[in-house]
Design a binder for these strands. Structure first.
Length: 261
DNA sequence: ATGGTAGGTCTCCTA
């Protein structure tokens, strides 16, 4: 069995103790992080190693982006993709000894206005997900788990109000359709919705709410996908809502799934 | 209809 977690940590240096708490309490085999907000050389990995997480592949960047895969199991660095061609640290991949591949992505948030003509950041987001779709179509991945902050909540029950978020970046039809086409092109299954098909499910709550828990205006932006050869009936996918209530929290919470592999 | 908070950082950019 392999348990994998994904978490947008929003500064790994500020939250190294928070990461250690998650590792100690949940004991995933692999933890994928996004938004390290740190150069590679300033990420302290010793404390993860002390907990048994001795292996990592890491792509840092000053102030923005940054992704890492930290692991109890040996990893082969499979490199990173640069879909926007700007050297942004938004992807890293690793291979396990059993042949399973882990793909860790941080999709651009896309700015505030869902119109690429007036908001280039929205165009970048669509281009990034389009590249993700094209890559999946080309490669037809096998024995692969794709995780990350995809910054899109595809289903009506992935947002607190489908109607009110139709025009809000993260849940617009153009983004949702593109994400669905990427899922289909690569042969991916949404593992979390495979395990928890109905009901509201969120992995992110804004910092701007007076009381995130009471207002509960969340969105499911963080995802675990897998190729069909890894999908079985016993994944035990889960989203750790309570982590949003920890001291000095990230605005995202960890998403976990367990695989028979 | 609006503004609200957080993190990193060439005091404003990104989310």
């Amino acid at each position: 069995m392999l348990t994998i977690a994904t978490w947008n940590i929003n500064s790994v240096r500020l939250r190294v103790d928070t990461v250690c708490r998650l590792l100690s309490e949940q004991q995933p085999d692999i933890l994928c992080l996004q938004e390290l907000k740190s150069p590679t050389e300033l990420v302290v990995t010793d404390e993860f190693a002390a907990l048994g997480y001795k292996h990592h592949v890491l792509r840092g960047q000053k102030a923005y982006n940054g992704v890492a895969i930290i692991s109890r199991l040996p990893l082969m660095d499979l490199g990173s993709r640069d879909f926007l061609g700007r050297g942004e640290a938004r992807h890293v991949a690793a291979g396990l000894e059993n042949g399973v591949v882990i793909e860790n992505f941080y999709v651009p948030a896309g700015g505030d206005i869902p119109d690429r003509a007036v908001n280039p950041k929205f165009g970048d987001k669509l281009d990034f997900v389009g590249s993700l779709r094209d890559w999946g179509l080309r490669e037809q991945p096998k024995r692969t788990i794709l995780v990350g902050d995809l910054n899109i909540a595809p289903l009506e029950e992935d947002v607190w109000s489908h109607r009110q978020l139709l025009t809000v970046v993260s849940h617009t039809p153009v983004e949702v359709n593109l994400l669905n086409s990427a899922m289909q092109a690569g042969g991916w299954t949404d593992v979390v919705r495979h395990d928890i098909p109905t009901g509201k499910l969120y992995s992110w709550w804004s910092y701007r709410a007076r009381d995130w828990d009471a207002s509960d205006r969340g969105r499911r932006l963080d995802h675990i996908w897998a190729t069909r050869d890894l999908v079985s009936n016993n994944h035990n996918a889960r989203i750790l809502r309570q982590v949003r209530g920890w001291p000095k929290p990230s605005d995202h919470v960890p998403v976990l799934a367990t695989f028979d592999c």
